[in-house]
Amino acid sequence: MQLVVFVVCAVGAVAAGAAVFRVDSMARATFALLASFVFVAVDVLLLHLAYLGVLVILMMIMEMVVMAVFMIMYMMNPAGLMPMSMMHNRRGALAISAGTFVLLAAGILLVRWPARRGAPPAEPTRQLGEALMGSKMLVMMVLGLALFATMVATVVLAQHRGRYDRYGDELERRVPDDPIRGGVGR
């Protein structure tokens, strides 16, 4: 039973991943990628990593939908209504992908995988929390700052009208001058 689910999902993940490059529509490509991630998530769930599996589903849905927003904003012909091809540089791409495949496959076959020592933890989610609050604290803090930097950087880069447009050159206005009012204040 588990094996069947695993194989179905593994094949499904690869097939959906391949579909990303076969479809014309940006929307379909995005959701094919999402399907691929969900298949992978089910396989992760089979490894008894409940939190990680569910997290992959949760995060990937939100992120793929956001990706669809950006893809459709920038790519022409987003619905694939006009015939077009998403393939570029076929030969180079083929060489690179074949090389990567051979490398990874060789890695799987040649690496001496370690044997399992000890039993898996009863609650992997709790282990994860302990690691985050203990030994991996630094990682988390650095990531926090990186996320903060991301926020500031995107706002700086993307915001058309900044605070000097809204509050005046001396930031003298009490209420900002916006094309349309928001939900808090005016």
């Binding site: 409940a50 939190y51 569910v54 997290l55 589903i57 949760l58 849905i61 609650e123 989610t125």
Partner: peptide, 11 residues
């Protein structure tokens, strides 16, 4: 009785 039922609902 999932150990991550709350996250499951969210997902």
């Amino acid at each position: 009785d999932s150990p991550v039922g709350v996250v499951w609902f969210n997902a």
